[in-house]
Computed example of a mutant assay.
Amino acid sequence: MSQDAMELDDIDRHLIRALCEDATQSAGALGREMGLSQPATWRRIKRLKELGIFGPRRVDLDLEGLGFGVTVFLGIKLATKGRVSLEDFERAVRAIPEVQTVQHVLGLFDYRLRVVAQDLPDFERVLRRRIMTLPGVGNVEANVLLSEERRPGPI
């Protein structure tokens, strides 16, 4: 984090919270809510983007609405790290469309994946045909998501 990123004031923090709740809000509407002009609000948003506070814009999809009724978290332990490079595994796993996130972690497993599927038989197909055939996969532990109470948002 740069030195500038450490110098966030209350207005910056308010902007971050407001845009995390609804990123479609205009700079004019946000400014009116905070007592700032549209140009002043836009300059602050631009500065926050330049500081790297905001990443690329994305659409938050309703996975169930798209037919993905199952989310599974997989812990993956590579069989032999020396024989298969981490880059080879990461490149291969990123090519699987059902894998939503790939996290290299410290602990019992080497990687944690978030995988979506239409249903459990579809997940089993993805697991057997795509994930278990990845280079270096050793132990795999699956945890099926039952509910999600909070999604990532402002700190």
Score class of each variant (00 low, 15 high):
M1A: 15
S2C: 04
S2V: 03
S2K: 10
A5W: 07
M6H: 12
M6Y: 11
E7V: 05
D9E: 02
D9I: 10
D10T: 12
D10I: 09
I11A: 12
I11N: 01
D12T: 05
I16E: 01
R17F: 07
E21I: 10
A23W: 04
A23G: 07
T24L: 04
T24N: 10
Q25P: 09
G28V: 09
G28I: 07
A29H: 08
M34Y: 06
M34I: 13
G35V: 04
L36H: 08
S37Q: 06
P39C: 06
A40S: 14
T41L: 03
W42Q: 15
R43D: 13
R43E: 14
R44E: 04
I45M: 06
I45A: 02
K46F: 04
I53Y: 02
P56N: 12
R58W: 01
D60S: 12
L61H: 08
E64N: 14
L66E: 09
L66K: 03
G67I: 01
F68R: 01
T71Q: 14
V72Q: 04
F73Y: 15
F73S: 12
F73K: 11
L74P: 03
K77F: 07
A79Y: 15
A79T: 09
T80P: 06
K81V: 12
G82P: 03
R83W: 11
R83E: 14
V84P: 01
S85E: 08
L86V: 13
R91H: 12
A92G: 05
R94F: 05
A95S: 13
I96A: 03
V99W: 04
Q100G: 07
Q100C: 04
Q100D: 06
T101A: 10
H104Q: 11
V105T: 15
V105N: 08
G107K: 10
G107H: 07
G107M: 09
F109K: 08
F109L: 07
F109Y: 15
Y111H: 11
L113Y: 07
R114S: 14
R114A: 13
V115M: 02
V116P: 00
A117V: 02
Q118A: 13
D119F: 09
D119S: 15
F123N: 00
V126Y: 02
V126A: 03
R129M: 11
R129Y: 08
R130D: 14
M132N: 12
T133N: 11
L134R: 02
P135G: 01
P135S: 00
G136M: 05
G136F: 03
V137E: 04
V137H: 06
G138R: 12
N139R: 15
V140D: 06
V144S: 03
L146H: 05
S147Y: 07
R151N: 07
G153M: 03
G153Y: 00
P154A: 14
I155A: 14
